[in-house]
């Protein structure tokens, strides 16, 4: 009986994380189109509205994600000739499952976490590294050259940047002395200057850029590269299978943004902590700060996409292996010395 209650509560927690996450993903796609539209002096989607609800009448295009998902659900799924049927259908699931599973250890506020495990950071690294299989298998199972090229590019890129990203997170765990994500956030208490973005600034920059590369986003989106290989690994996918790839990509963006916030920007801690403004903002719930910071990072992903042209493939590889990995290794040594010397105010 106790086991059943425990399972039920855990299931409710999972639903409470997944449903808002999927809603956020849906509206993140709209935000992307709107924001990039404004940056390029266009309006973006503005046809699908909620005219029946009076308050939402002026929010043009706010029904677009719903219309899009209904459209994708009713489109035919075309499986190419000689494609590996099972793997072709299974690949999108393989890319979405780790993107959702990683959310199990993300603390939204103090104690607001599905599974508060000790090896949380390792679990996150393991889950994000598994996500690449969806892409590789999709590229191979499609029986198409373009899809295969996209999958190969993506696999090499993700494996390379995972090392830089992993090393950047090693610096964080050395600074916090824990693999538990809640402990890492609590170790940053104090003020904005106590957060790890300052003492670990090179690692923060590398983590951020690697996370863009890990999620295959512009300017590192050679895996899709529509001007060279049409759409890369998902060129043969249609309908709901394509939508699942899309969901996984955006869920991953939100995930890496949340991780950047937890590791380097104090998670749910208030940015006014330790200043005279702290009592003024004491009523704001912690989760608000977390979500606000995550939104800033998510916005920056869109900003990058609207700003930069695509990297050349060999430049991506050079940046990952010859620039980022040496810098992270050097800075890990620096952090090690700082931790041993108990450098105030961060490592006391």
């Amino acid at each position: 009986m106790e086991t059943l209650i425990y399972l039920g509560i855990t299931l409710l927690k999972i639903v409470a994380v997944i449903i808002p996450l999927l809603a956020a993903v849906a509206y993140f796609t709209l935000a992307e189109r709107k924001i990039i539209g404004f940056m390029q002096i266009r309006i973006g989607p503005h046809r699908v509205n909620f005219d029946i609800i009076p308050g939402l009448r002026h929010l043009r295009g706010f029904g677009q994600p719903i219309a899009d998902s209904i459209k994708l659900m009713f489109k035919e799924i075309i499986i190419p000739t000689n494609a590996n049927r099972f793997l072709f259908v299974f690949a999108p699931v393989l890319s979405l499952a780790p993107a959702l599973a990683a959310w199990a250890v993300i603390p939204f506020a103090e104690g607001w976490v599905v599974a508060d495990i000790n090896a949380g950071l390792l679990y996150i690294l393991a889950m994000t590294s598994v996500g690449v299989y969806g892409i590789i298998i999709a590229g191979w199972a499609s029986n198409s050259k373009y899809a295969f090229l996209g999958a190969m590019r993506s696999a090499a890129q993700i494996v390379s940047y995972e090392i830089a990203m992993g090393f950047a997170l090693v610096g964080v765990l050395m600074a916090a002395g824990s693999l538990n994500l809640s402990d890492i956030v609590l170790a940053q208490q104090g003020s904005v200057l106590h957060w790890y973005w300052l003492p670990l600034f090179p690692l923060f920059a590398i983590y951020y850029i690697s996370s863009v590369a890990e999620t295959n986003r512009a300017p590192f989106d050679v895996a899709e590269g529509e001007s060279e290989i049409v759409a890369g690994f998902h060129v043969e996918y249609s309908g709901m299978l394509f939508a699942v790839f899309f969901l996984a990509e955006y869920a991953n963006i939100i995930l890496v943004s949340a991780l950047a916030v937890l590791m380097f920007c104090g998670g749910w801690l208030s940015p006014f902590e330790g200043t005279f403004l702290q009592p003024l903002f004491a009523w704001v719930p912690n989760i608000f700060w977390f979500l606000a910071k995550v939104s800033v990072f998510m916005f920056s992903f869109l900003w990058l996409r609207a700003t930069f042209p695509r990297y050349r493939y060999d430049q991506i590889m050079r940046l990952g292996w010859k620039v980022f990995i040496p810098i992270t290794i050097v800075w890990i040594v620096v952090v090690g010395i700082a931790v041993l010397a108990k450098l105030p105010p961060w490592f006391v």
Partner: peptide
């Protein structure tokens, strides 16, 4: 630790390169 390291190292890195070559 061993369980997650197995997934991280073998599934996340070694097998990706394996698949890369086999494909």
């Amino acid at each position: 630790f061993l369980a997650i390291a197995l997934i991280l190292v073998y599934v996340g890195a070694v097998m990706v390169l394996f698949l890369f070559v086999i494909m």
